[in-house]
Amino acid sequence: MSQSAMSETYDFLFKFLVIGNAGTGKSCLLHQFIEKKFKDDSNHTIGVEFGSKIINVGGKYVKLQIWDTAGQERFRSVTRSYYRGAAGALLVYDITSRETYNALTNWLTDARMLASQNIVIILCGNKKDLDADREVTFLEASRFAQENELMFLETSALTGENVEEAFVQCARKILNKIESGELDPERMGSGIQYGDAALRQLRSPRRAQAQSAQECGC
């Protein structure tokens, strides 16, 4: 399979959302994930920004369609309209700002209310590289994550540490849920679509057997 063909083909498409207060580094996380570079002349995001990338999760190609939202209150109503139909979300706070950590409850309330029940959320404590200015401990945040059934990672958009992991872990959990039958990609508003590759597998009879066997596991 050639490089270009590969970039067009994927098994699944997941809709992702990046949320959290303004200035926590959401756009930088996305930029680091997509471009593998730190964006240092960053402005506030206006509205939402769209990005996509195909990743390989346990042998499956997953296209992530990522909506990077603006953190400001002005855009809260816009952000709210993107919860619907999101399969996964990165909930971002800044480890050097307690204010952004305290706002997490509000973001979660929104997400629980507006997103599909099965949305997979990963909590990201960003700016891990600024450990000297830390205001939120790892322990505290990880307890919060446990209580709210979130996955948790501390990330650094500057160094790239744990950035890819955050997206991949979130995607893996969704894949697991699909395989266990907990999530039905066919259901409306799941934020998941079959990709071309998956469809091709469905169409080609030999492979379809394997595919359907997997699906019938539910």
Binding site: D41, V48, F75
Partner: peptide, 17 residues
């Protein structure tokens, strides 16, 4: 003015009210 005041449009696609 909106466009010249933000470099965030330089990457990707923005969608804003």
């Amino acid at each position: 003015n909106l466009i010249s005041s933000s470099s965030s449009f330089r990457e990707g696609e923005a969608w804003t009210p």
